[in-house]
């Protein structure tokens, strides 16, 4: 078996250790004896979605997102069809925003791919902190770090998770991200996948099943360390004293 992973515009969208997500996909396939080929698509390159099993769309600065926006116009149709055909996508931060209708920054309106019926608006206060989600998709919490100026309004979409600690889509601390077909779109850095191997395996499984049929199952891996790193964050914010302490620190 083999999966083809497309890393879109890594030269523009490479903030916050996004390549850790690629590395996580790659290693967790390799450790199971499954082949993996990662292709980086740079500005101006043609993308043939028929050959792709997973797409990673990462985060960039607002300035870089404007540049990417022009590129996306060229691949919009192919990308929309890929998602409609159950293609697997992980979109993080800027990538999440670009899947929607638009992102209105303080100076410009950046048009998105219109794959999700969502929109984002910039506000001056940046939403920054560790974040923990409880997702219907997983028994284990999802942990990460959020760092965004945009507030994303997801309408009727299913969120990726309910916020256990943190601020989430609009800063209100209710919901975070979007799950739509085989797309996970989220603000979570960290990077997302290494500390949440359950999310990584979920996406890998979806991609393998789409390519090789419904009965593909992933062999278990020793995830003791991944769980320890995940649990460290969960334990830290399950302790009310710690949460209070951090809140006080943030305000002085």
């Amino acid at each position: 078996m083999k999966l083809n992973i497309a890393h879109l515009y890594p030269d523009l969208l490479n903030l916050y250790g996004d390549r850790g997500n690629i590395q996580c996909f790659r290693k967790r396939l390799e450790w199971r004896g499954i082949e993996c080929e990662v292709t980086q698509y740079l500005q101006g390159e043609e993308i043939d979605f028929s050959n792709i099993d997973i797409v990673l769309l990462g985060g960039g600065s607002d300035r870089e997102q404007e540049i990417v926006c022009e590129e996306l116009k060229k691949i919009k149709k192919g990308f929309q069809e890929y998602v409609a055909d159950d293609g697997v996508v992980l979109a993080v931060c800027g990538g999440y925003q670009l899947l929607g209708k638009y992102y209105k920054t303080n100076t410009k309106k950046i048009e998105g791919l219109e794959i999700l019926d969502i929109y984002t608006e910039w506000e001056p206060e940046r939403l920054l902190r560790n974040i923990i989600l409880e997702s219907d998709l997983f028994a284990t919490p999802v942990v990460g770090y959020e760092n965004h100026g945009g507030r994303t309004y997801i309408g009727a979409h299913q969120p990726f998770g309910k916020v256990f600690y943190g601020l989430g889509n609009t800063g209100k601390g209710d919901y975070e991200g979007v799950v739509y077909k085989n797309v996970i779109a989220t603000y979570l850095h960290g990077p997302l996948l290494p500390k949440n191997p359950h999310v990584c395996d979920y996406l890998l499984q979806k991609a393998l099943c789409r390519k090789y049929g419904e009965d593909v199952t992933l062999a278990p891996l020793d995830d003791e360390l991944e769980q320890k790193a995940n649990h460290y964050i969960v334990a830290r914010y399950s302790n009310k004293g710690n949460v209070l302490q951090e809140t006080i620190k943030r305000h002085i």
Binding site: N14, G17, L128, R129, H189, G190, P194
Partner: peptide
């Protein structure tokens, strides 16, 4: 820095 994502860079 509270965010350690940069270790992956």
């Amino acid at each position: 820095g509270e965010d350690v994502s940069w270790l992956w860079d």
